[in-house]
C-alpha cells in the first residue's frame, strides 16, 4: 500500500551506490553465468547447426529433436529437470573451479537451452551465404570443412552477431531464473534483502542493475558489430549510428538487417 505513495529512495540509493560485498559477489555470479552459458550455447548451437546440415540422417534428426524439445518447453522446467538430475551426490561435478554445484547445473541448463536458439540463428546465418561461395571454395581445392571454416563461417558470423547480441541480452535477464535452484545471483540477492525488510524498492534497485548490465552490453555489441563490418558494403553504419539505432526501441529491430 505505502509502496506506491512513498518510495523509499534511500534504499534504492544504497543498493545502487553502496551495495556491499555480498552484492558484488552476486553481481559477479550473474555475469559469469551469463557469459559462460552464452559461450557454451554458441558452441552447442554451432555443433547442432552443422549436424543439421550433415549428410548423416540420424545426426540431422538428433539436431531436430534437440531444438524441438528445448525450444518447446519452458526454460524453468528445463532448469529444474537438469538441476534435479545432475545435482546428485553421485554426479557432483559442480565443485570444479570452486563453482557451487547449483551454478554449474544452472549454466548447464541455460547453455543447453541457448544452444537450441543459437542453432537456428547460426543456420540462418550460414544459409544466408550465397551457394556460389562454397562452390568457389571447392573449385579452388578446399574440402567442405575447410571451406566452411575459412569462407562460409567468417561471412556468416557477420550475419549472426546482431541476433547473437540480442540473445546475450536475454541471457543476462534469464539468469535470474537460476535463483530458483539456489544460486546466489543478483535476483537472489534482491530477494534476500526483500525478505528481511519487505520493501519493494529492492526490486527496483536490482532492476536498475540489470538495466546497467544490458546497457553496457549495448555499447559492447555496437563496438563488436563495428569491428566486424569490413568494407564490403557500400556505406557502413558508424558506431554512433548503430548506438542510436539500438537506443531507439522502435528502430532496434532494424539492427540485424543487411545494410547493402
Amino acid at each position: 500500500m505505502h509502496g506506491l505513495v512513498a518510495v523509499d529512495w534511500h534504499i534504492i540509493w544504497l543498493r545502487i551506490f553502496h551495495p556491499g560485498n555480498v552484492f558484488a559477489r552476486a553481481l559477479w555470479v550473474t555475469i559469469y553465468i551469463s557469459v559462460v552459458s552464452q559461450i557454451l550455447g554458441v558452441a552447442l548451437g554451432l555443433v547442432a547447426a552443422l549436424m543439421r546440415m550433415s549428410r548423416v540422417a540420424p545426426l540431422r534428426w538428433l539436431s531436430g529433436i534437440y531444438v524441438w524439445i528445448f525450444r518447446g518447453t519452458p526454460l524453468l522446467v528445463q532448469i529444474f529437470f537438469i538441476y534435479t538430475t545432475f545435482n546428485t551426490p553421485s554426479f557432483q561435478f559442480g565443485r570444479l573451479w570452486a563453482v557451487p554445484a547449483e551454478a554449474t547445473t544452472g549454466i548447464l541448463a541455460l547453455s543447453i537451452n541457448e544452444g537450441a536458439y543459437m542453432r537456428e540463428i547460426i543456420r540462418a546465418g550460414i544459409d544466408s551465404i550465397d551457394r556460389g561461395q562454397m562452390e568457389a571454395a571447392k573449385s579452388l581445392g578446399m574440402r567442405h570443412g575447410q571451406a566452411m571454416r575459412r569462407i562460409i563461417l567468417p561471412q556468416a558470423a557477420r550475419v549472426i552477431v546482431p541476433p547473437l547480441g540480442n540473445e546475450f541480452n536475454n541471457m543476462m535477464k534469464n539468469t535470474a531464473l537460476v535463483f530458483t535452484i539456489g544460486v546466489y545471483e543478483l535476483f537472489a540477492d534482491a530477494q534476500a534483502q526483500y525478505s528481511v525488510a519487505l520493501k519493494s524498492e529492492y526490486f527496483v534497485a536490482v532492476a536498475v542493475w540489470y538495466l546497467m548490465l544490458t546497457t553496457v552490453w549495448t555499447f559492447i555489441q555496437a563496438w563488436i558489430e563495428r569491428r566486424l563490418s569490413v568494407s564490403d558494403r557500400g556505406e557502413e553504419l558508424s558506431f554512433r549510428e548503430r548506438l542510436e539505432l539500438s537506443w531507439n526501441p522502435l528502430t532496434a529491430w532494424g539492427r540485424g538487417a543487411p545494410h547493402r
Partner: peptide, 15 residues
C-alpha cells in the same frame, strides 16, 4: 586444384 573455374557471378570472397 588442377582445374581453375571462373564463375558467371564471380563468387569472390567478400571478406
Amino acid at each position: 586444384t588442377e582445374i581453375g573455374m571462373v564463375f558467371q557471378r564471380f563468387n569472390l570472397f567478400p571478406h
